[in-house]
Design a protein around this nucleic acid. Sequence first.
DNA 1: ATTCAATTGCAACAATGATGCAATAATGTT
DNA 2: AACATTATTGCATCATTGTTGCAATTGAAT
Lengths: 163, 163
Amino acid sequence: MFFCVKNIEYSQNSCTFVVQYQLTCCCIMTVEEILHAHDLKNTGCRKYILGELLKSEAAMSENELKESYPDLFDRVTLYRTLKTLEDRGIIHRIVLNDNTVKYALNRHHHEDDKLHSHFHCEKCDEVLCLDGVTHFDAELPKGFISKEVFVVVEGLCADCIKK
Amino acid sequence: MFFCVKNIEYSQNSCTFVVQYQLTCCCIMTVEEILHAHDLKNTGCRKYILGELLKSEAAMSENELKESYPDLFDRVTLYRTLKTLEDRGIIHRIVLNDNTVKYALNRHHHEDDKLHSHFHCEKCDEVLCLDGVTHFDAELPKGFISKEVFVVVEGLCADCIKK
DNA sequence: ATTCAATTGCAACAATGATGCAATAATGTT
DNA sequence: AACATTATTGCATCATTGTTGCAATTGAAT
């Protein structure tokens, strides 16, 4: 199955991230279309989570997702839906150094990405995906190979410095 | 309070890590002496944890620490002891991308360290502190400042590649 | 040996991850 | 528009981990 966005053809398997990037950043597609593109049913919880994440620039925790409507969905439903969205490559989970977890949309082309870096404000707890240029080099012990690198930069965001 | 190791004087507050580094890597001091240097009582759980971590090159999880003697200490005691040792700067906790936690000795001079990087073997689950040269550069949004950077490199260790 | 503060074990609770199962909802078909 | 089928949801439930209070115990200074 192929579909076309902005005159570029993508197979659904190999390039959904690019499509989604155009979606979320250029607002060409709706939540429903994202789900359809990934062969997922248009259910309430999925629409809600994607809607919230699309509205938010920052990554969101399970609690932050529940904030607006605490009892809209069962805890397990939220948990399973987040897992499904993660498995399908629509969102990713970010594990912070304090052991908490946040979720964010995969707004970019992640397929070949091996470096996942995020910023965590120690004051307001906001988490952002670092989309700018990021370099990482580590000297590994002999014979070791690296596959993926996860980085969390802890610091203060611009808003919190002002205050 | 000052004390002397290898003809170099260190104030206890500012340089305990250096002392400890000499300790653990050069085997000048015992577990008891480490505890004494940090003004901590010589208790069973502390001696056990430090002993296990000193024996092990890799970081250890709570379960790995309990493996040899499952019922030697209460779960809460282990938890609190790990916290004490972390608070005193003797060990550090490593949060992996799968949400699990491991602990390792602060074998190096960590005071000015802002980059904490670890290797996690996806096959055998072993975690090592990356002591070699490690560089990290990230372009942060305008006005943001970074304080600490936590890195986890996921991959395969030499032993697991051979197999 | 005594004393005092620190440490430990136990009970208990919260938060989170995870699974089974029956009820319900979403989509393609008639 | 109703139906059938499969996926999704809510509920019950359990495991694991983080956390605190309190009374009993232990470490080490005297």
